[in-house]
Nucleic acid binder design. Structure first.
Length: 417
RNA sequence: GGGGGGAUGCCCGAGUGGCUAAAGGGGGCGGGCUGUAAACCCGCUGGCUUACGCCUACGUUGGUUCAAAUCCAACUCCCCCCA
């Protein structure tokens, strides 16, 4: 590799954010000479981003910390169209109301990672609906249509994947990349934005924007992508017992978030420390050199650092204490998910299988019974083998809760009210 | 516009009249091993029921039949080829 000079690109490569980059040397020079303004676009398809977006967010954070200006682009307009990249079938179209409410809910997360404001390197948040919704179709076609050839577009992975799988790709989706390319041009014009970053699945879209900006305005523009993150055993990142790993606390509690990172595979600890924490590289090397059981200490550091950044120091500490009590000392952790139950119901007694449903540890009666039959159900750490075992007020401990466990990792506290 | 093919459980995919809540795989869940890891091994995997059983399910709607995911008709959506 070339010797990079700019702090930004040095960090990006050292930490493992770099997958592909256009015009690396030029970009490096630019980043050494002055402030680079860069953007990443985020979909508004769900009310919260999930860990998959954490990598791009960390890139923006790195960008800002190394003296440059990040733009967070909310895809209020492009989400109306739907990005076909990496999807083997089209998604249901979302209504504007849903997109708007998703966007409102997503925005909060960014303030935790970036400093927003009016200063030269302060972050800015924009919504592409602001310029996409007012586009005039004929004008747009005349101005930009000539710069895209179907021949080329057919070659992009997002398009090829669909065609190869004989899945329909609608004209609507086909236009997504053109709109995203136009975003880049628009941001270049209004903010002097010269760099678009994103996940590796965005490469085609990003390159299109780079080309468009060069062709139409003759301006230099660059693209940089992050690697697609999978765990060492090949699974996609972002799943836990509780479902997707959301960044919003309403969707996933800080405790579950902490647990997600604590359960990182051994082989990924170093990689994740580099990508998702800001610990010095030397410290990371020390942590990842731990072997056997020791590496669990490194995983705790990882979980603490990552949780701290998103949910704050206190939340991280509480999560760690709860986890240690629960898993290392076999006690109750106060931060375990809690479900309220009416006192009167408890006094009457609740059949074990329905108690597990109440606690949210089983999705149906059959599910609960399977759990009990399979030997994975425990109440106050005692195995339950009888479906009709009764849970009652007598099971409440001194703190007024009953600990329900499904398997080794899923624990819920039933609290009498 | 013409011709051909297809739609099955969370996903992929077998099944072409009863033995089918539906093979197999993936995923998920539980157990074992261990370190709250990976890999590996075992079990479970529609709902309601202690259970006998009942209900819902093979694109939609109707029909044939004692009996349909399987046969027929219409409809919807999709794919491919020709124009």
């Amino acid at each position: 590799m070339t010797n990079l000079k700019s702090n930004f690109l040095k960090s990006v490569t050292e930490r493992g954010y770099m997958h592909q980059c256009t015009g690396l040397e030029d970009l490096d020079k630019k980043a050494t000479e002055g402030i680079v303004t860069a953007y990443i676009g985020f979909d508004c398809t769900a009310p919260s981003l999930h860990v998959g977006s954490l990598l791009p967010i960390m890139m923006l954070r790195t960008l800002q910390k190394t003296g440059h200006k990040p733009i967070v682009l909310m895809g209020g307009g492009t989400t109306l169209v739907g990005d076909p990249s990496g999807k083997d079938e089209s998604r249901k179209l979302l209504t504007e109301d849903v997109i708007q409410s998703n966007m409102d809910s997503i925005q909060k997360v960014f303030a935790k990672f970036l400093k927003f404001g009016d200063g030269p390197t302060d972050a800015v948040m924009v919504n592409n609906a602001d310029w996409l919704k007012t586009l005039n179709y004929l004008e747009f076609l005349r101005d930009f249509g000539p710069h895209f050839t179907i021949n080329r577009m057919m070659g992009f992975d997002s398009v090829k994947l669909r065609l190869d799988r004989e899945q329909p790709l609608t004209f609507l989706e086909f236009n997504y990349m053109i709109l995203q390319a136009y975003d880049f041009l628009a941001l270049n014009r209004s903010y002097g934005c010269t760099l678009q970053m994103g996940g590796s699945d965005q490469w085609g879209n990003i390159v299109s924007g780079v080309d468009l900006t060069r062709r139409v305005d003759g301006k230099e523009a660059y693209g940089l992508t992050t690697p697609l993150l999978t765990t060492s055993s090949g699974a996609k990142m972002g799943k836990t017992a509780a479902g997707a790993v959301w960044l919003n606390a309403e969707q996933l509690s800080p405790y579950d978030y902490w647990q997600y990172w604590r359960n990182t595979e051994d082989a990924d600890v170093g990689k994740f420390l580099r990508l998702f924490t800001e610990l010095p590289l030397a410290e990371i090397e020390r942590l990842e050199s731990f072997e056997g059981q020791e590496i669990n200490e490194a995983k705790k550091v990882l979980a603490n650092e990552v949780t701290k950044m998103l949910h704050g120091e206190d939340a991280a500490k509480t999560a760690q204490e709860t986890a240690e009590k629960t898993f290392e000392q076999g006690q109750l952790g106060q931060d375990l998910p809690t479900v309220d139950v009416e006192r009167a119901k408890l006094d009457d007694g609740i059949a074990a299988f329905s108690a597990f449903m109440l606690a949210g540890l089983a999705g149906s009666g059959g599910d609960a019974k399977r759990l009990i039959k399979g030997g994975g159900a425990r109440i106050n750490d005692k195995a339950v083998s009888d479906i009709n075992h009764t849970v009652s007020a007598a099971d409440l401990n001194d703190d007024g809760v009953i600990k329900m466990s499904a398997g080794k990792k899923r624990h819920v506290l039933l609290r009498a009210i």
